[in-house]
Design a protein around this nucleic acid. Structure first.
Lengths: 165, 165
DNA sequence: AAAACATTGTCACTTGACATGACAATCCAG
DNA sequence: CTGGATTGTCATGTCAAGTGACAATGTTTT
């Protein structure tokens, strides 16, 4: 079975599930890691804007933030300019946790590429990036790991509209 | 974000979801396509052996076969040598449907690789295959698309047990 | 300013997938 | 023949994800 789609799908599932396991010892799920990482580079943002950035529904953010707040990783503070919204902030432990999460990701990448020659690694990355770009793949939708955000938006097939079809 | 794990996960999700959509017009879900395809190359097998091959639970096969039987794509016949088991067979329409499913997969592969130069396509496939092989990725677990079959079994990291860790 | 409408965070509810456990029928080992 | 395993089936329980509604607040229109 040398079908690239097969390979990509199977590898993607493996990688996602593997990442989940690697994060588990830290009491962190991928989506929560993504949330914290986003927050770290954009503190004070609202639940809504974070939800948009992560591709999850506003309603789902409530439970997510509830749990992270209970773990003392984020704080809900009143938003300075909008009394409807909550401004989210990381605690100090959360900052460290995000760093560790990135290190986990680094390790996974290293393990993944360990079978390849040094020169092949950037090749693979480049090929993947080009395919992902061409297909309009959302670069962070993978952390949701749950449902997919609806049907795949079809990029115009790239080849000048295909022969017969 | 040039992390290969990120890219693979995101691309895998895209590809899986895309395949689901491409199959939808035929009234077929990926897991059912996999089931029919397996059956085509191994007619008369039991639900149990098919379940093992596809990585789904025996209980789940019941509903799957129920629906496929209702669509007149498979038949349950008494197993010749084991009166507990059912032997599964494809109907004629199902044979054609599997062919069409393979053609859909071919089209998806072509679309996926269409951004790459001719010479790069086998490169990507080869790199993916090697990584998948090294990580012990089950070549067809991707069609389940639902949950993952538990924690990823860790291949021995490939590099002579890593420095410090 | 008032009224109409949109947005934010929250909650209750429904839906559907998935795993678990039990069961009868049948097979197989001793 | 008896005890234990296997096959297909069903009835559950559990849990996540989506939907709709809501109060509070912000924004736009008149």
């Amino acid at each position: 079975m040398d079908r690239p789609a097969f390979l990509l799908s199977a590898l993607g599932l493996h990688v996602a599930s593997d990442f989940t396991e690697r994060l588990r010892p830290f009491g962190l799920e991928p989506i929560k890691f993504a949330l914290l990482a986003h927050l770290k580079s954009d503190e004070g943002s609202t639940q809504q804007s974070l939800a948009d950035a992560l591709g999850v529904h506003r309603n789902a953010m409530v439970g997510l933030v509830d749990e992270l707040e209970e773990q003392e990783l984020v704080q809900r503070r009143p938003h300075p300019s909008d009394r409807r919204a909550k401004a989210l902030y990381l605690t100090e432990p959360a900052h460290e946790l995000v760093e560790r999460g990135y290190r986990v990701a680094d390790e996974q990448d290293a393990d993944l590429l360990s079978v390849l020659e040094e020169s092949e690694r950037p090749q693979l990355i480049s090929l993947l990036r080009r395919v992902a770009e061409a297909r309009g793949v959302n670069p962070q939708a993978h952390l949701c790991m749950t449902q997919n955000s609806g049907p795949v938006k079809q990029p115009p097939t790239n080849r000048a509209d295909e022969d017969s079809k």
